[in-house]
Design a binder for these strands. Sequence first.
RNA 1: GCGCCCUUAGCUCAGUUGGAUAGAGCAGCCGCCUUCUAAGCGGCAGGUCGGUGGUUCGAAUCCACCAGGGCGCGCCA
Length: 583
Amino acid sequence: MNVFAEFRRTVMQAVQTLAEQGDLPASLPFDAIAVEPPRDPSHGDLATNVAMVLGKPAKLAPRALAEKLQPLLAAHPAVTAVEIAGPGFINLRLQPEYWQQQTAVILKAGIGYGDSQRGEGKPVNVEYVSANPTGPMHVGHCRGAVFGDALAALLEKAGYQVCREYYINDAGAQVDVLARSVHMRYREALGESIEIPEGLYPGDYLKPVGAALAQKYGDTYRNAPEADWLQTFRQAATDAMMAMIKDDLAALNIRHAVFTSERALHESGAVQQAYDRLQQRGLIYTGVLEPPKGKLPDDWEPRPQSLFKSSEYGDDTDRPLKKSDDSWTYFGADIAYHDDKYRRGFHSMIDVWGADHGGYVKRMKAAVKAMSGGEADLDVKLVQMVNLLDDGQPVRMSKRAGTFVTLRDVVDEVGRDVVRFIMLTRKNDAQLDFDFKKVTEQSKDNPVFYVQYAHARISSVIRNAATELPGLDVTDSALAGADMGLLKHEAELALLKLLASWPRLVESAADAHEPHRVAFFLQDVAAGFHGLWNAGRDDAGLRFLLPEERELSRARLGLIRAVAIVIASGLAVMGVTPVEEMR
RNA sequence: GCGCCCUUAGCUCAGUUGGAUAGAGCAGCCGCCUUCUAAGCGGCAGGUCGGUGGUUCGAAUCCACCAGGGCGCGCCA
């Protein structure tokens, strides 16, 4: 249950009632009506802009409209006061009982608290990572991986049916380079002493792939022409690389449901079919592109190519689907891939890309719009760079010097939960510093620690309850039966109100495709809890465990368990495991 | 030259999709441990929301132009 959504319905019903009485025009637009927590808590529990939004269409001054609504809203049993403020805000105050009972709601819902039906089970496709299958994942892939996975979890919590998907770029020239690199390792495994030429992949991770091929084929392909072995080696190599990548992702607890191969799209004819469909719509022509502005390549010359009219769908220029030698461009295949998603029933697609692909966004959105006749929507989330630091000093990375930082290095160094949490502490389009020293520091500078510490403290209190209050049933279902009316302190009520806004946050974060909001929300919740904890130091009457007052203790244990549940629920979206104790 | 993103406290960043007096952490200053983990908490101070116009009841948020920073810019992937 979402408090704000519930009262939004109450507000709309009040407007409806006035309309039926003839006091307001019928069919007023409800879309812009919002019921929110007011920024300043002294304004009350809930604030609505209804009078200001409907003032103009109803041809009434906002404050006059608010006055008409006032008695209707005051009739709600939980409402204790309806105040009109400023330009026409309506502020509602609710009975403390209303908030107090949210404790039991949370305890009963458990980790599923905040689950929403906002998505109505609609399918959403989230494509993320999609690192080229040419080597292990490096730290640069990490943020997109975590972001995409958390976004997928967030959308699931908001009631969407989510497909986590990975696009394998196994058709370009880079996988041929991979195959040649593996052939070198194959020869090496057969006893040759080799030197990896410039332009091939030098990494040691290809040695076992070469060795396996040597085992399997002996020296069959040792001196054979490339045409004999390229396909076989390419397949073996990309399979091995994908296995390695899946392994790296598993270290982050990331598992995609669908892997789509670019090569398979070519081989099945899907690329050609997508091309044909666009051609039938008259969106393809043969033309010559303008030379690129700024830096003109030395060897630039005008050549006719197959172009897609992406400029008709918001792109800056038309884009090539085929190269001048008539082979497919990457974009050509990517259109087929998105067409394939659309045909699998996804009218809502999200792609998570690195920021260096920003120049590609417009054409891909244009393609999705064109293919689906405007039915499907693509949102591209660009994930900015991560600056790796160690105690404030930039970590220099160089493949040649062997200081290349892989995803696995980072996870091994600081742990999966830390990586996942930190990667979500910035909005996706802002750069992020990742400091090995700071992220493992146990202080409130470190948001992972701060939130985990709150959860651990609550677990500690529950453990201590056994000795302080012998015989007390501290299961959630038992605590839900406590007299929550005893939670009267201002700080307790403030914390309860914050917890009750979790379902609303899930929905707004899911709408905006912004999982980082969960991380910030959890820091607020943790701060509220730590504050309450310390209030018990100044005033012993505010402690959670009071042997003399069993019923009050039960209510407070219920409250802090509700805090733990909301933290666990948020961490679940982020893919982080809540801890029971620190170390 | 063009496109996209960014610009909020000394620093790092939020800002509930246009709401009321713009928030948090760090750094600075002042307090709080015989009590459930002080690994924490409370308080003070700190702002022309890059700039100028516009849209409206109302703008950090939307639009236009300008300035600064980042990324990208024929067939690469």
